[in-house]
Design a protein around this nucleic acid. Structure first.
Lengths: 231, 231
DNA sequence: GAATATTATTGAAATATTTAACAAATTCAG
DNA sequence: CTGAATTTGTTAAATATTTCAATAATATTC
């Protein structure tokens, strides 16, 4: 099925489309146009149409897109038609929050195993998810055929854990640590770096000026105060 | 450097560079090359040099970059030389995890106020952070001069809370809800959508063979990469 | 059923970003 | 002091992504 070349930027928007289509479906809507979709997901309608067109002709001219059909198409495309089990490595604060987050509720994704080093966690069940000793990780990953993991461990052991994950056959890692781990090229890592995100946001609000607002940058000794960003 | 624009992609990498420079500084390193940096942050060295060059000539040919000087430069650039107070809207599971996350430890960012609707939370202090009634939000935001907020509320009230944040003068919102909120264009929103991230990751491991780990998010980035900007 | 309005599809143009290549500057060894 | 080795800064080329514009198909209206 991995035949066509879908741009990565497009791939990243698919879940967004899927989610809104489900919302429309549940609201009883039968059709939707790229313009309407654009409003909800805040992506230019031309981009949406272009994105969809990579998958073939999904809509009807003069009509728009059939909500149910499109939803089902994306469901398959995003593997939402079968359950994906995910491992949680590191059951600390963030890890436990993610357990509670419950991806399952609206998606066919669930955290099915947790791993930690702490004795008081090992052997317990959190939110219905059993927590194993990290030493059993490679075996359990193989046995349970898990191929996606969420990494929420201290930075110091991030690489070591990534190595174990690879050994256990994991093909995708959602990395919440600030460390850029090294893995074989067939393993995919998505970094979610909360501190980075905040810093970038702060940078943007301080140095981005909206041309439409015609605001002048403040005068100070920072060499960057005359930088502008174009949206 | 004057009247040059910093590409958004570059801006998103700045925190990454900054973090590693601090690591090098603490490890006592005095100089670093773009090649060495590249290895750690997993960004092509040409891209790194290109990124730096937007800010002027920060290095020396044949030598590399002075760790301390560069670190200090980025510290200023990223506003790390002064404390940024951030509000947390919604002190649920994820919100509490973020309180514990403690951005402060390694960065000049701290959550200084929390807001919630729950009576048993209002008036309490979590991780040293006072939790206020959401009804006081607009006033408190103004009074405390907070201009960045983290939004971790149920989807149903995401837009309503965003409106309040705007009213309270907030200029940057890190949005953990799956809703794409509508705000005036001078307010910046970074979306961190955990379910999206997982779905995209799953899509990638199923449909892409060739993983080029160099480009991210948000993104994700972004992460959440979908990191993902209200552009 | 013809006329008009909608709206997807598609090729092309415009932007944005990454990568490659190399001259210029500097270090370093001897 | 000289030449070889490094490594940046920068121009240009290559990729990737978004947006535009022309066209074609379908629906809706009268």
């Amino acid at each position: 099925m991995a035949d066509k070349k879908i741009p990565k930027a497009t791939a990243r928007r698919l879940p967004l489309y899927y989610r809104y289509l489900r919302f429309l479906y549940e609201a009883g809507k039968e059709r939707v146009s790229s313009a309407k979709l654009s409003e909800a997901v805040k992506v230019d309608s031309a981009t949406i149409r272009r994105d969809f067109s990579y998958f073939g002709a999904l809509g009807k001219r003069g009509y728009g897109y059939d909500v149910e059909a499109l939803m089902n198409f994306f469901s398959k495309t995003l593997n939402q038609d079968r359950l994906t089990n995910v491992a949680l490595i590191g059951v600390g604060n963030l890890g436990q929050a993610l357990l509670n987050y419950n991806f399952r509720r609206n998606n066919n994704i669930r955290i099915s195993a947790g791993f930690d080093v702490k004795d008081d966690l090992i052997g317990t069940i959190h939110q219905g998810v059993p927590i194993y000793d990290i030493n059993e990780m490679v075996d359990q990953l193989e046995m349970q055929q898990i191929d996606v993991a969420i990494l929420t461990v201290p930075s110091e052991i991030a690489q070591e854990m990534a190595d174990k994950l690879v050994k256990g056959g994991v093909r995708g890692i959602m990395n919440f640590t600030p460390i850029r781990v090294t893995v074989p090229k067939e393993v995919r890592v998505h970094n979610v770096d909360l501190t980075n995100e905040l810093q970038t946001l702060i940078y943007f609000i301080n140095y981005y000026q909206d041309f439409d607002q015609k605001t002048e940058p403040e005068e100070d000794d920072n060499p960057l105060n005359d930088l502008f960003y174009n949206e």
